[in-house]
């Protein structure tokens, strides 16, 4: 670690499609996975991240840099996260949440999970299936039985609208 030299340490991360990325250690250790490697002294050379592709890793690093530049102000961090995720499509969000889980970055994991949840809230079952391409493999009888079991959950607001 660079504490003695005073210059910020840079880490090199490698995606599973062999792209290399430089990132400041102070930002990268938002990932508990990377922090553990740094603390164990395994971060000298290139850190291979076998479960993250280059496109997703680039995005995660943008996030790491952005969020670590904000001082300890939860509201500003939250608004940064909201803005960061606002233009991501669902496919990207799914990649991000997988990467956040693998990298053990709870703040990103929670932000993406909450964003996906927001899409599902107050929507009909049919809408959610269509939106996410979920195939209904219940027989009509089975489906009716599950619905009956949780009858109370079908009494609230629901919509098929996209907004």
């Amino acid at each position: 670690m660079a504490a003695e030299t005073g210059t910020p340490t840079t880490l090199t991360l490698k995606s599973n499609d062999d792209e290399l990325f430089s990132v400041a250690e102070s930002a990268a250790i938002l990932s508990v996975t990377i922090r553990n490697m740094v603390e164990d002294g395994c971060a000298g050379g290139v850190i291979p991240l076998d479960n993250v592709d280059g496109k997703t890793l680039a995005s995660v690093i943008t996030y790491m840099n952005g969020i670590s530049a904000i001082p300890a102000d939860e509201e500003k961090k939250k608004s940064y996260r909201d803005k960061f995720l606002s233009d991501k499509d669902f496919e990207t969000l799914a990649d991000m949440v997988l990467a956040a889980n693998y990298l053990n970055m709870s703040c990103l994991m929670d932000a993406v999970s909450a964003k996906i949840a927001q899409v599902m809230e107050k929507k009909s079952v049919g809408w959610v299936r269509r939106k996410f391409g979920i195939e209904n493999d219940y027989t009509p009888e089975e489906e009716a039985a599950v619905k009956e079991e949780h009858k109370w959950t079908f009494e609230g607001v629901e919509t098929d609208d996209d907004n």
Partner: peptide
Amino acid sequence: LPQEILERILYFLPQEYAVRTSVLS
């Protein structure tokens, strides 16, 4: 998505919307 991620997504839903995901598939 892995179970732990799906659970995290459902964590952010109100109870009734979390429970009714059981009807999806």
